[in-house]
Design a protein around this nucleic acid. Sequence first.
DNA 1: CTATATAGTTAACCAGGTTGTCTATCGTGT
DNA 2: ACACGATAGACAACCTGGTTAACTATATAG
Lengths: 156, 156
Amino acid sequence: MSSDIPGFELPLRLFLGFRVIIDELHEELARQGHPHVRPMYGFAMQAIGAHGTTAVDLGRRLGVSKQAAGKTIETLERLGYVERARDPHDTRKKIVRLTERGIDSLTRSAHIFEDLRARWARTLGEDRLRAMEEDLRTMTPTDAFRLDMPGWFGGL
Amino acid sequence: MSSDIPGFELPLRLFLGFRVIIDELHEELARQGHPHVRPMYGFAMQAIGAHGTTAVDLGRRLGVSKQAAGKTIETLERLGYVERARDPHDTRKKIVRLTERGIDSLTRSAHIFEDLRARWARTLGEDRLRAMEEDLRTMTPTDAFRLDMPGWFGGL
DNA sequence: CTATATAGTTAACCAGGTTGTCTATCGTGT
DNA sequence: ACACGATAGACAACCTGGTTAACTATATAG
């Protein structure tokens, strides 16, 4: 079914590879006390980072409009993963920072990601996996986040 | 930026690999007279296949609800990529079939996919690429389409 | 001190999905 | 022969992650 078109298998499998990892991550994350974290939130929180950002900057980093970034921030705030405060040096700005809970979800994600990668390494062999990662780095843009990463998802 | 979490690079690169291929495909497809084909339509048309289907069956193949499949069919019909006709043997059913234009877009997609794969093979080496494809097959579900493929996209 | 640029909010919209409900038709069991 | 359950499709209301456009408030450069 997927082999009707020879060249089609590659992108399909790349997507499925992404999907199985992200799915397993979020299943485990749900088990560890973060049932409401959706894949997008993870990308956004990672882009917000330890030092915080503003809505405009987050939009730029994720490659979406400031309005879309604003909506995401609002959702994350409602769920308790980030908090906003006015910037004293520029009262137009609102600095978005990760809360304890936000940092916890990122930390747990990191551990789970490493476990999943380890499982791939056990199945494929560390050298084969490293080769795959290297080849993917070769074929994909250098600065991942700048290249309109998650903005692409919904618009598919 | 993407290397904050070690295990995160793998899924991110897998997604970006998928993305660059699908993006280039659709750019080229647009140049070849199909500017309105979105990635989802390609998946749907491939699932419809040469013999045609019904909305319910298409939904099952793509892993989405029959209503979602119906909406996609409506869009494809409006764009002239499929046509619907009542099934004479079961008047509840409406058979969805690819039009000439629909078949043309799939044929062109196939050629472009093969070109893109060839480019990867030239850069990485045929054996490295084959190894990647094999490893991805190992780590992803066998029946790609049945595993709720594109339904996942929008919901991310 | 005015003009322009920037940060954030709000509103209206789109695409692709969901669930629930409804009608029409098919097919089976008594 | 027919009533009843299963199936196909259509419709409505809603969700999420996006978009543009228009607005207010603040900062900054000339």
